[in-house]
Design a protein around this nucleic acid. Sequence first.
DNA 1: TGAATAGATGAACATATATTCAACTGAAAT
DNA 2: ATTTCAGTTGAATATATGTTCATCTATTCA
Lengths: 110, 110
Amino acid sequence: MCSDGSINSFDFDSVNQASRLFKIMSNLNRIRIIALLNENDMTVTDVSKQLSLEQSAVSHQLRLLKDANIVASTTRGKERIYRLADSHIYTIFEQALQHVREVKLHEKRA
Amino acid sequence: MCSDGSINSFDFDSVNQASRLFKIMSNLNRIRIIALLNENDMTVTDVSKQLSLEQSAVSHQLRLLKDANIVASTTRGKERIYRLADSHIYTIFEQALQHVREVKLHEKRA
DNA sequence: TGAATAGATGAACATATATTCAACTGAAAT
DNA sequence: ATTTCAGTTGAATATATGTTCATCTATTCA
């Protein structure tokens, strides 16, 4: 499949990065945060209210998302406004959603 | 964004399913198994040799993948041959890979 | 300056996950 | 029938992850 004839043609680093990306998306609250920020930039408090999560929990998750370069923030006064830094990840989420729904349809038919 | 005016327009069940799907993909060895089975159907032993993993570890992971309807198996004699039951998941993996590589290119430029 | 507000952080805890080991099942070959 | 081979399973362990709580910093406003 690749020049050296081995079957697994992927460079380890890319696959590893991909798995980190999936890890980010594997948590429900993180997905919800991403989905929310995809609609509007907002503060930590806004997110925590919208999703009924503790402010601290949101802050912790936002840090993970920031470390993964998925969100970025701007400080304004004592607020910090978060936004999606990388909308690609949202696209991947949408594709997964689409997939899930297709599977669901399939199951209903069968 | 949706009929009831709330921002988060997703049905909970779909998002939940999506997160489960990402959870599956978030493990390096599972991705490697999926990538391998995408190339060829093969036995547990084959997989464990190809990836230098313990047979038992592979078996455990295959069970998770089977429970998630991502692989299926056929018994032949004392062997069990595994195959991808759902190639969509591989597509999602490829998209993530592509994404990761684009990001990498971006970083090199910056 | 001091109180109030927004957010970040670290420790502690609970839970989830992955791997290993040993024991098991079931089929094939002797 | 017993040995061997392929795979599964459950328990144990180690590690990762997510949430909460208390505390801390920084900014605004009185």
